[in-house]
């Protein structure tokens, strides 16, 4: 029975994950190394990488920075009425439930060229839809929960006592945050940031809808993969897919390492407590 179950598990993993991934590798190298390199260094590929990088950097900075502030206010802020917190909590989760296509569509509805806001921004020469700002907004929407969801439970767990202790010892707010709060949330923040980076790099549906997928303008790596696949450019699609796949694997390894680290820290923490 045991052997059967273990074999079944291996079989499922191979069938569903390992075997399909091997096809990306063979697809990418169908024309050898040179084809692979060529596919990655095409002008449209390089441009797409640049756009993806922009999005990742801007989205990560915003969502990490504001995510931390948000978590702090959500957990510690006593200015929020009691009933408001669960509402905000629920709102934060919403992006997880929304189909990426709808995520992109919302931006079009709100900031599209024919809407009030769209016309308003256009008067300053800023296009949101079918341009970078819209793509960034859409990606920010999709990745918003990651940092907050990692940091809030930790803040709740450590409680306010240590921070109050620091303040009674005369430390300023900033000093308290830097020396007392930050050390305990830094790894959750990093964890959330890694998730944010990975997801903003990989986001496809929302970006596709908002960007219009204009080659050499608003095309990201994922939308280029889609276009290549659509045009039966096997090597092109698979080469970029392989790179994205490798990045995902590295991301998973980093997250795994962080998780292990946290577990070790936590177990040290609890063993100290019990002594």
């Amino acid at each position: 029975m045991r052997k059967l179950l273990i074999s079944a598990t291996w079989f499922l993993f191979i069938l569903i994950i390992i075997f399909p991934i091997s096809f990306i590798v063979t697809g990418a190298f169908e024309e050898g190394w040179s084809g692979f390199i060529e596919a990655l260094t095409r002008p449209e590929a390089l441009h797409a990488m640049k756009i993806s990088l922009y999005i990742v950097v801007v989205v990560t900075i915003f969502n990490v920075g504001l995510g931390i502030l948000f978590s702090l206010e959500l957990v510690r802020g006593n200015w929020l009425a009691r009933w408001v917190k669960p509402v905000i909590n629920a709102i934060i989760d919403l992006p997880f439930a929304v189909s990426p296509v709808i995520g992109g569509f919302m931006i079009i509805l709100l900031y599209g060229p024919e809407t009030v806001l769209g016309i308003f921004f256009a008067s300053f020469g800023v296009d949101i839809v079918f341009a970078l700002p819209g793509m960034i907004l859409a990606t920010m929407f999709v990745t918003f929960p990651f940092v907050v969801r990692e940091v809030v439970p930790v803040l709740e767990e450590i409680g306010e006592d240590v921070e109050e202790a620091s303040r009674t010892l005369g430390a300023s707010k900033w000093r308290t945050f830097r020396q007392v709060t930050w050390p305990s949330i830094q790894w959750p923040v990093v964890y959330g940031a890694v998730l944010t980076i990975a997801r903003s790099l990989g986001e496809f549906g929302a970006v596709l809808v908002v960007s219009g997928n204009i080659i050499n303008q608003t095309q990201t790596v994922t939308t280029l993969v889609y276009q290549d696949a659509d045009y039966f450019n096997v090597v092109g699609a698979n080469s970029l897919a392989l790179i994205l796949c490798l990045i995902s694997i590295v991301t998973l390894l980093v997250l795994d390492g962080l998780k292990r680290r946290q577990e070790v820290l936590r177990s040290e923490h609890s063993s100290e407590g019990s002594v």
Binding site: F19, P20, F23, I24, Y226, A237, N238, S248, I249
Partner: peptide, 18 residues
């Protein structure tokens, strides 16, 4: 977790190839 981490466009291309 890989299927979750993999960009969906990549997963799509992958199954297209298979």
């Amino acid at each position: 977790d890989l299927p979750f981490a993999l960009p969906t466009a990549v997963s799509g291309v992958m199954f297209l190839m298979v």
